[in-house]
Design a protein around this nucleic acid. Sequence first.
RNA 1: GGAGGAUUCGCCUAGUGGCCUAGGGCGCACGAUUGGAAAUCGUGUUGGGAGAGAUCCCUCAGGGGUUCAAAUCCCCUAUCCUCCGCCA
Length: 417
Amino acid sequence: MIDLKLVRDDPDRVRASQRARGADESLVDALLAADDARRAALARYEALRAEQNELNRQVRSVSSDEKQALIAKARHLADEVKAADAERAQAEEALREAQTALPNVVEDGVPAGGEGNSVVLDVVGTPPQLENPRDHVEIGAALKAIDIERGAKVSGARFYFLTGIGAQLEFALVNLAMAQATAAGFIPVVAPALVKPEIMAGTGFLGEHAAEVYRLADDDLYLVGTSEVALAGYHANEILETVPVRYAGFSSCFRREAGSYGKDTRGIIRVHWFDKVEMFSYVATEDAQDEHQRLLAWEREFMDKLELAYRVVDIAAGDLGISAARKFDIEAWFPSQGAYRELTSTSNCTTFQSRRLNIRTRTPAGNQPVATLNGTLCAVARTIACLLDHHQQPDGTVYVPAALRPYLGGREVLAPA
RNA sequence: GGAGGAUUCGCCUAGUGGCCUAGGGCGCACGAUUGGAAAUCGUGUUGGGAGAGAUCCCUCAGGGGUUCAAAUCCCCUAUCCUCCGCCA
C-alpha cells in the first residue's frame, strides 16, 4: 500500500514514478480525490457522533419526564449517524481501492522503461570457456542427480526429483546458505508454505501476480511463491521494539508459471516447485537503501563461494513488481546457454508491505511503518542447474567449489557412478 | 470431523444495557524522599486517526445485528484450551 502522506506531499514525484514504470499517471489524481472525499465524509460522521455521544450522556442523567423527549430526539439523530457512517465506510473503501491501485514509488536512480532498459552494474569472474558444453539436464542425468522424466510421470511438466548426489547438493547448498546467514546475524527460520489470503495480499502477490499463485480453494489458503510472504506476515499487526530484524527463511516455493509456456521448458531452471533460502529484513525507513546494498553484498558473497561468474543488474522501473521501489538481480553464467541467467533477486519494498500488514516500529516521531526488504540467498533448483552447467569439466565430472565441500563429505568432484 | 470452554490495556484481572469517558494489580517511565540504592509515596502508561492547540472521533479478538444507548444481548468468523475420533 502506497504512502498516502507521500502522495499528498509530493504528487509530482509519484507521477514521475508512474511514468518511469510506464503506468497510469491519472491514478495519482484519482487517489487524491478519493482521499478528499474520505476526509469530508469522516468529518461529517465524527461531528454527528460527537453530538450523539453528548445526547446519550444527557439521557443517562435526566429525570424520566425529560427522558422521553430526549430519547425521541436521539432516535432521530441515530438515523442520521447511521447514514453518515455508511457514507464514511463507502468513502474509505473507495480510498483503499485507489490506494492499492498504485504500485510502490520507485527509488531515485532506477532506470526508466521496460525489460530492455535494465542496467548492468557489475560483471564478476570469467565465464568458463568450454567446447560443446552439456546442459544441466544431461549432466544431471549422467550423475543420476536429477530425474526429470519421473518428475513428469509423478507430478507433470516442470517437476523433478533430486536423487543421490542431487539430493545431497540441495542439503549442502541449504546448509551453506544458512551457515552464511547465521554468521551474518540472521535468525534462521523454517516457514510455512501455505498462508492466508490477507497475508498473500499484504505482500502484494494477489495483484498482477495473482495468476502466478496456487490457491487451495477448499481451504482458502495460498501456496507461497517465496518465503518472503510468510516472513513478511510473521510480524503482521505488530510493533517491533528493535530494528533491524533479519530472518533467513527456508521453505518450499510454488509457482504456476502461467504465461511462461515455451520459456525454459528444459530442465529445472523454471519449475512449479523448488526450495529456497530467503533473506528478509525489517529496518527503519531511513536505513532501507543501505540495507538493500547489504543484502546485495550477501548475495554476492554466496555467488563468490560457489565460484560462479555473474553480473549484477539494476532492474528497470517497468519490470519491477508492484511492491518494489528498486530491485537488483544477480545473473550467473550458464555455459550451455552462453548467457547470464537470473539466480537471485533482492528488492527494497520500503513501507509498501508493512502498511498493508500493519508492521511498525517505535521512533521519536511515534510509531512508524518499517521498511521491508528481501533477497534470495539460494534458490536451490536453479542453483544446482547452474553449478552443474558452470562447473562441468571436459572429462564429464563436475568441479565442487571449495566452500561447498565440507557439506558434501569433502568431495572435490562429482563423477558418474 | 464431533462436544464443551475461553479471548478486556505489555502481562494478570474486575466488569450481566446508561454511574465504563473501562476499575485494580504487576511491569514500565518520570518525580519526591535518600549520601546512593531498596522500600515507600505521587504522577503517567492500549493503540490508531484529525487538529497549531484545547479538544474530538475510533478501539474490549474480527465482522454484522438489536437499541436513543453495547465490553455487556443476538448472529457469523477467527484463534487458543480441554475431551473424543483420526494421525506422522
